[in-house]
Design a binder for these strands. Structure first.
Lengths: 245, 245
DNA sequence: ACCTGAACACCGTTCAAGT
DNA sequence: ACCTGAACACCGTTCAAGT
């Protein structure tokens, strides 16, 4: 206000957003191990203290990168991807699939997302997830008293499923396929007396498609929710109440 | 065989099992960060090479510790914990709850279990999980073609749910409770226009009980599975198509 | 065969010092 | 206010050398 000396900022090269953007780039190309404070400082030609001043420690950078990616995925209105005729279940599938597909470009995201929700259960990522998915749970006709349990169940399924789809930094998609083929071969070669179920599953594991299986899984979870709460499947029908969930 | 010079083993102090046992002890008391090769060597009065010779690198120790704990939990017949009158769904709940409860004593287990299943999808832990749970999925009457999808869905839900129950090494149960209270307070104080659903969930989040919610969640998932496989009389909803999938 | 432990190549974080 | 970067206290892993 009163001060007439217009203070010239020494530099403007270093912004919080720029650090986070670079962090995402490092994570995408080299996995979680590639995000080091040193890699950040070298690429930005700065000192370690600058990172701490702008963002914080390594975990804070990781959380910020996760938040940036997840909130971007959640922000777009579902109508952009969903058939507008689809009911709330379709919208939940759309959101879930966006998260699933984000793992392809950001294989590090699954474990960071899980870690972040543990560290900050009331934080912006948790809020975005529960608001985005919860609205459709509400639209399914689930009674309000069950919104939190039902949404939590969906979130838990999504987290577990994407965590298993994530490759670690080193492996690419092709490696992972061979990896699962090996696993299926191991299952198939087991003693059928000791492992009858796994033995029988080996063939399906070999043939299975991660994405299709993810959709089936979430469909099953939603079926359970709508069945238990008495809500009709895709259509938000009116007066259905079940206090029991 | 032929050689008559009975070679005296220099020492017998260092066994693979002993290393793993100590690793679990370190993990239980100090979290994942407390398991270092150096901590192991100091407590065992040995050199780093000995660990590598007997078990392998740090990740191998982590995997071995995880395997030991998980397989122990899965090994007991479910009849020990389940009401013997209970059906297959009860038995799945029993197994799931054993896993859930194991997180209390071993808060590090959730993230290590997830990591291990990614690293070794055909390994003994995966096999134990899918055989143990899959047998009851079969007993529910799910058609064989859907065993793998259905069991995967249950596994994914369990992984996601226990990952969120896990505290990190520093926090104890009391800390975590205060943590969630804070989160609920944050949710409750949000702008109701922007976050109507989360705002409405705040109260339930505050009142909720992790364990009860876990049981509700798995019940919902199982309801979805039995509903889908019962209604179709064949495969579960693998053919229910979201048009944009 | 089994173990030792120094050496190597990294980490994240801090903080006095600069501008 | 904002940045520097040396210093500190750690890591996991390797491998020649011992027995």
């Amino acid at each position: 206000m009163g001060s007439d000396d217009a203070r010239p900022r020494r530099r403007q090269t270093l912004s919080r957003a720029g650090i986070i953007e670079l962090a995402i780039e490092l994570l995408d190309s080299g996995g979680e191990a590639a995000l080091t404070v040193r890699a950040l400082t070298e690429r930005l030609s700065t000192g370690a203290g600058a990172i701490y001043y702008r963002v914080g420690g390594r975990d804070d950078v990781l959380d910020a990168a996760t938040e940036t990616v997840v909130l971007k995925v959640l922000r777009d209105p579902v109508e952009r991807d969903s058939d507008s005729l689809g009911g709330p279940q379709t919208h939940i599938q759309t959101l879930a699939l966006r998260l699933f597909d984000a793992i392809d470009a950001h294989p590090w995201l699954a474990s960071c997302l899980i870690a972040q929700l543990v560290r900050r259960p009331g934080g912006p990522v948790a809020i975005g997830l529960f608001e985005g998915l919860g609205a459709h749970i509400r639209d399914m006709g689930v009674p309000q008293a069950a919104w939190f349990v039902a949404t939590s169940t969906v979130v838990h399924y999504i987290l577990g499923a994407i965590s298993q789809t994530a490759r670690d930094g080193s492996a690419d998609g092709h490696d992972r396929e061979r990896f699962l083929d090996d696993a299926a071969a191991t299952w198939g070669s087991l003693n059928v007396e000791a492992y009858p179920v796994v033995q029988a599953m080996a063939e399906q594991m070999h043939a299975h498609d991660d994405r299709a299986q993810f959709v089936t899984g979430i469909t099953l979870v939603l079926a359970g929710i709508s069945h238990a709460s008495g809500a009709a499947g895709g259509e938000p029908s009116a007066d259905e109440r079940n206090p029991n969930v």
